[in-house]
Nucleic acid binder design. Structure first.
Lengths: 341, 341
DNA sequence: ACAATTTTGAGGTACGTACCTCAAGTTTTA
DNA sequence: TAAAACTTGAGGTACGTACCTCAAAATTGT
């Protein structure tokens, strides 16, 4: 059985009140007594029973997810997961709120984060490209003792407590390996398409893709990235141009999830049949495309896991408790029709 | 804020004691009053605060993992995860014990399960091939109100509460898809090797593999399964024979994890270079083999997740609480060198 | 050596639930 | 209709922690 505060009091030969003062660093304990209590904590291996403490405190974890308000399918999936987490949250002493801010508008984001500070939240999960403004806002949050995790897109130079997401360079490499081994083993060209190369994720993926392509599949030529900007017609146009301008296209790599148009165009057999398509993010659309074989492979990260992980990490950081890092690692998943499950 | 028992008492216009009697089905409440309390529960959406209840009860979940005592690398990995879960368990009011029984000895297994019953455990995770004896033992456990989950290997016809593992037919299909697309697109032969076809998993994987191979890659010929029986030399011999007897071998599919010998033989370039190898279960050995490219792809299930999931499900079942099934689904993971992470 | 200050202990209440006892009230049965 | 059986309420203690008050003790400064 775990030691309790009473065990500590007995061991350190002090009263329960003093133990309490030390544990919750309340004033009025001499250095000597503090040391005695800390020694007892160490000796008995005491750890606070967080559930009992939360009961006594009537604690509610106020957690906020801040996402860019774009209309991509990935956002939608993430939103759904956050909403479903929010329902379960109440039975775990947490309240989860989702705030959407205009994409690529650091100012608006910072304003929202300030608002959170005033509302005394316990933790914030931020999905946003890294910019100096955001970095500063995160520092400010940390000064106010608010737990912060970066979601999906890392904030490497910030004070952020944790990053929950995948290494996009490795994801790009994985895509390249699949692409390279799925297309016939002879020269050919690969189309790369994305919403926007402004996003750090896309750039990293392209980087990883090119690296592995160069190292392992030098007989394949990777074409310049086409940017679709979430505009269906633009994507269509770009693809048509690409196939007109380049012969011997053997594969398409979609860096982002929002390329519904691609799947549709590919389905409407505009292309010669054996075209290998690799895309990112498992959504209802890519799922369907895998099923009808208009996509060959999807590289994805489990959004449900990401959201649950964010909640666990934010709670742990807010309690200053250790996290189980193996549980919180997000994997780069490869999904084929066969393991869609 | 969630409603409490006091809210229920007020709503149903009864005393706290009566609410308590209903909630913990203690005797001495008239049907009418019971209905009133139940109505209040429904109206207020009351759910028991499990953490407070556990505090009051000083509850400790006694959980047992029963695994076959074989020496495969997969077992080792699983064992490590159970041990690490066991360390964390104490801070979650749980104690986890690992029991190893002789493999393929239903009698020994049943004996251990009986022992658990006498020790009044809360839940048992069983990894064992499905046999009538085991099925009966599980029924017995369920009669004694012990939560039971099947681990890795399903017990479909048993009274088991839950299965934690993957669909091995689908896993075999996934392996086939990778194999079929990784080898050159022309006729060739595939060697299939396993420890033993006695295990249900291996049979299912082979089944799925053959299905997809037949449907999609009929130019490839899948050879009869070689059984290694955990014997290094036997594996070596079988492989040597196979390569002697069959020309044009283009791939090797390892159904089970315990085929250390394969990787070593493959590494010692006994085979013509471009031989595609697909194996199951990510262990320290297959990990290394991926890294040095002697294996092309590994199909795996996350053992850490499996163990954590088993613990969560056993606790939930023992409390008769809903589980979050999306969190408990084990995915068929594809691991390449690039997404080893 | 005295007052002022700091430190410590004793005791309480609370969180939401579990489980216990005892007495009073209500219904059933003989 | 009285005894027996059942039903209900009131009240208590406990789990491990948080947070409060007040008084006693120990230490400090003058």
């Amino acid at each position: 059985m775990r030691p309790t505060t009473n065990d500590l009091a007995r061991e350190a030969d002090v009263s329960l009140a003093t133990v309490d003062r030390v544990l919750n660093d309340r004033a009025g304990v001499s250095a000597k007594t503090q040391a005695r209590v800390n020694a007892a904590i160490k000796k008995l291996g005491y750890t606070r029973d967080v559930t009992a403490a939360n009961l006594a405190k009537k604690r509610q974890y106020k957690l906020i997810f801040v996402l860019p308000d774009d209309s991509s399918q990935f956002q939608k999936t993430l939103t759904e997961e956050i909403e479903s987490a929010s329902i379960r949250a109440s039975s775990e002493r947490s309240s989860i709120q989702l705030i959407k801010v205009p994409p690529n508008d650091p100012h608006a984001l910072v304003k929202e984060l300030r608002k959170c500070q005033r509302r005394r939240v316990d933790g914030i999960a931020i999905m946003a490209p890294e910019t100096p403004q955001v970095r500063d806002a995160i520092s400010e949050l940390k000064e106010n003792n608010i737990a912060v995790v970066a979601l999906v897109s890392d904030q490497p130079k910030s004070q952020c407590d944790h990053f929950i997401g995948i290494n996009n360079v490795a994801a790009g490499r994985t895509a390249a390996k699949l692409m390279g081994r799925f297309v016939p083993n002879k020269p050919g060209k690969i189309i790369v398409i994305t919403n926007s190369l402004q996003s750090h994720d896309s750039v990293d993926r392209r980087l990883g893709f090119d690296e592995t392509m160069r190292e392992r599949f030098s007989h394949l030529m990777v074409l310049p990235t086409l940017e679709g900007h979430n505009d269906r017609n633009r994507v269509k146009q770009a693809l048509t141009n690409a196939t007109r301008n380049y012969d011997n296209v053997v594969g398409v790599y979609s860096l982002s999830s929002g390329n519904r148009a691609i799947m549709q165009d590919l389905a409407s057999d505009k292309f010669p049949a054996p075209l290998v398509v690799v895309a990112h993010e498992l959504t209802s659309h890519t799922r369907k495309a895998l099923q009808n074989e208009s996509i060959d492979a999807v590289i994805t990260q489990n959004t449900g896991h990401i959201v649950r992980s964010a909640v666990r990490v934010l709670r742990a950081k807010s309690d200053q408790v250790e996290i189980d890092s193996s549980q919180e690692r997000v994997r780069i998943e490869i999904v084929l029709k066969e393991n869609l499950g």
